[in-house]
Write a protein that binds this DNA or RNA. Structure first.
Lengths: 233, 233
DNA sequence: GAGTGGTCTAGACCACAGG
DNA sequence: CTGTGGTCTAGACCACTCG
């Protein structure tokens, strides 16, 4: 056992027993004095806690406990085992931004549309009980859904499209992966940078057709979200 | 831009252009001399590459390029867009551990079996091109698959079961989530603690039946693995 | 034994947050 | 201005790998 590992273990157990989310650790200098080691060694120990997702460093402020998992993960899993979209479970859905754009080559390939197609990108934040769950970027073909950017404000996007355009949208295929949040995603989702997100990229078509009218990317907190997939019998 | 970030970027681009998987970087001392910086700063730069999953440090040997993604992800994402299991794509599959156990209450609930059922747990590591991709824990009902723990050594587990027991296994339902690796998973998968894993928990039945005979949990590197899901038309 | 990465110390200066 | 974390240097010693 190295010194920094010992210190990391000590700090971890102290955090778990006596700290709550939002509390700050003693400063690096203080800890160095307490353990009679160099400040760099303290930093190395705290590196471990950062890697474990237990604390968050804040330049000029201190090191904050962000994920005291004992309280954190209990009860979290299991409430949202179905995708929010498929189940229609979006008790709240806020539009973050709307933007009309031309597809780039990557997006054109994914949507299988011409490279000069125009799309409206709508970013939404979905919450349940005021708890942010996921951010979704929807890319919608302007040609089929003119003016979609102005009309939609909240609620279910697919229900809105069905009501105003008479079009039923169907998820056809999706890719599921994982990644860490960007800084802005972490801010939106009120989650630490170390919490993985479940990433679902979907190709959606009109009912029974093959052409893609919507491509969406959802990024969901993995502590409260799991996607359930049923196979045909 | 800090010095270590500049050096990390330089090294990364050099790795991408002139290194292959398995090549070793110049030693830390050499790099320190070349960039005229302290060896600790070189180490901090290489830390970035390690975290990015691009290189692997080997004590006493050197720092090896392990995941040259330009070659890797182009082939990887796309080659493995289907789950490894469903596609039978496990070019290499090593049994890590075998253990016979009684189900606990959680596992009994998940498998929907009596709380005194016995299961064999087989943990496997799956690699492609000697690159670890995922670890899978299989929980198999002893009653239906007696002695499965002794027989299976490598290859496809489901093919083995079909060949030796005459039973076809079907995935019926799965839950997809994400989490960070444990220390031992990170070691097995040669990946940094910050790289999220795609977690797939599956309930598998005999063909056309409803009773669960296998419950499995796979944990896959999110940088090289995405799961593809097709919906019925 | 020579060379490599791993750890620890010591001291310096910088950048950021907040009174 | 003070205190915090972030970076960089310098030097030392250790543990591991391999010839």
């Amino acid at each position: 056992m190295t010194v920094y590992q010992e210190v990391a273990r000590t700090l971890e157990s102290e955090i778990r027993s006596g700290f709550s989310n939002g509390d700050f650790l003693p400063s690096e200098a203080t800890l160095a004095g307490r353990f009679s080691i160099n400040r760099h060694t303290v930093r190395r120990a705290i590196d471990e806690l950062v890697n474990a997702g237990l604390v968050l460093r804040q330049h000029g402020k201190g090191t904050m406990v962000v994920n005291n998992r004992i309280e954190y993960s209990i009860g979290a899993r299991g409430r949202f085992t179905e995708t929010l979209e498929e189940q229609g479970l979006h008790p709240s859905c806020k539009v973050i931004s709307v933007q009309t754009m031309r597809v780039d080559s990557k997006l054109a390939a994914r949507m299988r549309v011409a490279p000069d197609a125009d799309v409206t990108r709508i970013d939404t934040l979905r919450c349940v009980d005021d708890q942010p769950i996921c951010v979704i970027s929807h890319y919608l073909l302007d040609a089929l859904l003119p003016g979609i950017g102005e009309g939609f404000k909240s609620g279910s996007l697919h229900a809105f499209i069905e009501a105003h355009y008479g079009l039923r949208i169907q998820r056809r295929q999706c890719l599921v992966g994982a990644s860490l949040p960007t800084a802005s995603e972490a801010r939106l989702l009120h989650c630490p940078r170390q919490l993985p997100l479940v990433v679902v990229k979907s190709n959606n078509t009109l009912w029974g057709e093959n052409a893609i009218v919507e491509y969406s990317v959802s990024r969901s907190r993995s502590d409260v979200f799991e996607m359930k997939i049923e196979s045909a019998r």
